[in-house]
């Protein structure tokens, strides 16, 4: 039914670059503006090739991010799986959206995932309650999305990833 896999390495490479960007040190003042790179790359692939990248991939991508960040194992895995689920159910609509509408969706999705991990951290006393400034990261993610989208689409078509 599904076509033979092609160019899986492009997906893996894009994730690796996203992980890199996720942990590159930021100056103190820009701390809150760090975009959710891995989440965005994940949303793109789920949207573009939902039969290849799904909830399971999202789970493992999140678990690896947990290990990378030293956060609670499974926290990002859970939020990413949720992201993948929502994107899966919306992907046909998302493809039709204009860049601005897509950015709005990214704002909502990334904001949701950030809120969720914040709640988990508060609930398990992994982190103290602070300001909600971290949601600025969702804003910067939405800002970056159009460029990321064009770039990843270019990659996908160029390497015929499916």
């Amino acid at each position: 039914m599904t076509p033979r896999a092609n160019g899986i390495w492009v997906i893996i490479l894009s994730f690796l670059v996203a992980y890199l960007l996720e942990i590159v040190p930021f100056p103190e003042w820009a701390m809150h503006y760090r975009p959710a790179w891995v989440a965005m790359v994940l949303i793109y692939w789920v949207m573009a090739i939902p039969y290849r990248v799904g909830i399971a991939t999202a789970w493992f991508a999140g678990a690896f991010l947990d290990i990378l960040e030293g956060s609670l194992l499974g926290m990002n895995a859970l939020t990413f799986a949720l992201l993948a689920y929502i994107t899966l159910s919306l992907h046909q609509r998302l493809r039709m959206f204009s860049a601005l509408q897509q950015s709005g969706m990214i704002l909502a999705l990334v904001g949701l995932s950030m809120m969720l991990s914040y709640w988990i951290k508060i609930g398990l006393e992994e982190s103290s309650e602070g300001s909600l400034l971290f949601l600025l990261g969702a804003l910067s993610s939405a800002f970056i999305w159009p460029w990321l989208f064009v770039m990843l689409r270019h990659l996908r078509r160029g390497f015929d990833v499916h």
Binding site: E22, M31, H32, G70, S128, E129, G130, F134
Partner: peptide, 13 residues
């Protein structure tokens, strides 16, 4: 070599 990107926690690697 790295600083935790979680604003609620102060950890370094």
């Amino acid at each position: 070599i790295n600083v935790s990107n979680d604003p609620g926690a102060r950890r370094v690697l």
